[in-house]
Amino acid sequence: MVMVFKRVKVFLMVMLFSASAAAENVSFSFELRDKGGKVFEDAVVSLMPTDSSLIMPPPSGAVTEMEQKDKQFTPHILVVQKGQSVSFPNRDDIQHHVFSFSETKSFELQLYKEDVPSPLVFDNVGDVELGCSVHDWMLGYIKVVETPYFAKTDDQGRVYLQELPAGEYNLSVWHPRIVNKSNGFTMQVDVSKDVLLNHQLEVDVLPPLLGFDSFEQDAEYQ
């Protein structure tokens, strides 16, 4: 009996600790710089809790957009949680033909001008490279993550996540121009209290091939 009581006591203590931990929200600030020390914008930063019970599914019915506008994918990189629906509206007055060969999500959509197709569900974790069969220069990415805790670095290279349940997390940083096998890195971080973290990449970053995208001529009418 004593043993049983002890076990119940320990269990209750764990429950109490967990409850207090779950109730406690903290913030996570992160700043990313490239190898040369310049701020790195548009990188995907996600925090995967060690405690999987902290992962909430994406709200049902929510749809996020990956537009085709001025012959570019907008945003250039879209981050979504696994299970999220994504729509691909064509905001241009010309035809686009969006495709992906990525294992994470393989599809194609022929989009006449101003078409808004039915959303697609992204239910596998990984990265998706998007192209347009009409405009060779169009390139976009969808990064599908398991966790609801993610953001992209802003023009100061910063990410600020508020109301994060305190706990242990696996931090992932990803950008298609980071030159290594996984296009990024992961590390464990303790976010049991407010955290401010700076990181400088040790690997190279490819130069951006952006700019002048709207100059791309329409192969269809050539």
Partner: peptide
């Protein structure tokens, strides 16, 4: 027109019929 999705990244585009040759960089509207 035959314009398959890229093959290992490379693009093939073929068209057959009656058309103006693809020389102009001005005449890109329908």
């Amino acid at each position: 027109r035959y314009a398959p999705l890229p093959i290992n990244g490379y693009r093939l585009r073929v068209k057959a019929g009656t058309f103006i040759p693809a020389l102009s960089i001005e005449n890109t509207k329908p």
